[in-house]
Design a protein around this nucleic acid. Structure first.
Lengths: 345, 345
DNA sequence: GTGAAAGCGCTAACAC
DNA sequence: GTGTTAGCGCTTTCAC
């Protein structure tokens, strides 16, 4: 690979000139011929400035790290898509990782982060040990933003209106006449999941229905865990008629399990999930959901991490795009046949 | 952030000693006290070697770039998961990008790649202009591996047994008595998709069924495109009884559309898709698929790109894990009621 | 047992 | 209009 000074030598100029031409330095005054000669050489010799040298000089890596719990989840895929767009706007590449890859302190990603190999770190943080360790490790050198996390100990926090989402979902079901409405969280102690649970409880109590602990289950964020969770839940609370699921992937597992046990959705049981992903519209029955600004969450996280010169360790709630119910076919009035019956098997 | 020489100064030693302690240089002979003193300082001052400086010195970036067409696809998620595991084994972080982000030559990722900011580049390449531009740009400085691509012009190629997958899928349907079996590709001219189509055609001809061009459609890799494609296909070839779908996401779109048009799967129509993802088991009816070694593909790609000192520009086909049919509920004998009827809506 | 020195490739300030 | 210089932080050979 050609270097700056090789180009300079070949063109008969100094490295400084080459550098300033490459970087489009407006204050550079060179003859048209010199410029042309250098540009021709750059092209012919395939010169591109060395990233490491540049980064060493400028203390800017040109990359951000985004660590989520599960790269394969379509929910995080939305966040990632948003983050990537925003990162591109800021001229940054995105280093993606999974929380499980971290924690030992020796992973390639952590080494990169600790050594200034990224200009910022975004953690989709569940408050686990690993994230904490990483956040601590990174805070000393790099701005950190926590997504959907709980506590803001000197770190910027970005969250969505989770409580409202739980509330809207529940109110949708209440409006359809349901009273015995269960709630399926992701995991106990997960801040965003707990906030959605709080929204559910609040809506229930406002409707003068007092939910019991038995109406609440833990559904994880995979198809299988969702399926297992609805089994457990209907075992202890068999007379539930509807469910708010905090994770849409888990909800699709629930849907499959309900189908297999012969509970018809939505005739016998209504299901609403939080988060709108493309898949939700393409399962059958299609899933009614509360749409949340996932892409925006990713974008805002990048903005925050890039703006963090001044270390404004605050909690930001994305409110420019309100959570809203997208009505599809998995919810229906209590004890009613579906409005528009479809040809079904 | 503390630097090497700050630690050295504080410890009253030279930077060389600090460096060799950090890097666990076995040939280093220091007194136990000195070592302890330095290690204590490293800990207290939160020292971590600067990634850029290290990379500049060693000409190793500690990262690989993986560019796929769609980061949100669960199919690529499998590949990514495999790549990440292998990358971690090699001590490399993974820089992920989408093909669409590239191409202008100015994207952050391309700058990083061009300037040696990654130690290798893996392109899930569809032979589009962008990929080509990128591959060319990168080849001069970094080993490149193309995934599922067609032509090997001086670049290492990794592919799976796509033709066999198409064949197996078709044979599964033929064995169930189907004759009028359609094929849904991803896009015309996509090498891996065309190879699967070739497998389909071959199996059909071996069974003395001559498929017509009308039995073949283009289904893209999204739910919506799959749904639209089956509409078109059944319009021109209404008497198809089964379909091989080259993309599992697209296939789920097909499934939804078939449900909506009142075609019962598998009683009226059988559907088999290529690639096994978790979702395939959790749609209803669950999808019969041909499982392909997606994770292995990701792993092998990383291995190849890391081994490419000697630039062994060959075509590698992953054959250690054979494609195989996973029978689920979306395929059944022609004109037969399902073996074990389930309670259904 | 430990230190000195050189240089990876680049850029910014200043010199001419 | 263009060149010189210094130094970002690290490693590594060789010297003591």
């Amino acid at each position: 690979m050609a270097t700056n000074s090789e180009i300079a030598k070949a063109a008969g100029v100094s490295p400084a000139v080459v550098s300033r031409i490459v970087n489009q330095d407006a204050s550079l005054r060179v003859s048209a011929e010199t410029r042309a000669r250098v540009e021709k050489l750059i092209d012919e010799m395939d010169y591109a400035p060395n990233a490491a040298a540049r980064s060493l000089k400028s203390s800017k890596a040109g990359a951000l790290a985004l660590v989520v719990h599960d790269l394969t989840s379509p929910v995080y895929a939305e966040i990632i898509a948003g983050a990537q767009r925003a990162a591109a706007r800021h001229g940054k590449a995105l280093l993606l990782g999974e929380a499980a890859d971290l924690g030992d302190g020796q992973s390639p990603m952590e080494r990169l982060i600790g050594g200034g190999g990224v200009d910022g770190l975004i953690l989709q943080g569940a408050g686990t040990q690993m994230d904490r360790a990483l956040a601590r490790a990174a805070r000393r050198s790099v701005p950190v933003v926590l997504l959907q996390s709980g506590d803001a100990k000197g770190t910027t926090l970005i969250r969505m209106e989770d409580e409202k989402a739980g509330q809207l979902a529940t109110e949708h079901l209440l409006a359809l006449g349901h009273k015995r409405i269960g709630f399926l969280g992701v995991a106990e102690g997960l801040p965003f999941s707990d906030r959605r649970a709080a929204g559910w409880r609040q809506a229930m109590e406002a409707a003068h229905v007092m939910p019991t602990g038995d109406w609440r289950g833990v559904g994880g964020n995979t198809y299988d865990k969702g399926a297992a969770a609805i089994d457990r839940l209907l075992n202890v609370a068999p007379d539930l008629t509807a469910l708010v699921a905090s994770n849409v992937v888990s909800a699709i597992g629930v849907l499959a399990r309900l189908h297999d046990m012969g509970r018809r959705v939505p005739q016998d049981f209504s299901l609403i999930a939080i988060h709108d992903i493309a898949l939700a519209a393409h399962v059958r029955p299609s899933l009614t959901v509360v749409k949340m600004p996932l892409r925006l969450l990713g974008e805002e996280a990048v903005e925050a991490v890039c703006a963090e010169q001044t270390a404004s360790h605050e909690a930001i709630t994305i409110s420019s795009e309100e959570p809203r119910v997208i009505k599809r076919d998995s919810t229906a009035p209590l004890n009613a046949e579906p409005a528009d019956a479809q040809p079904s098997s």
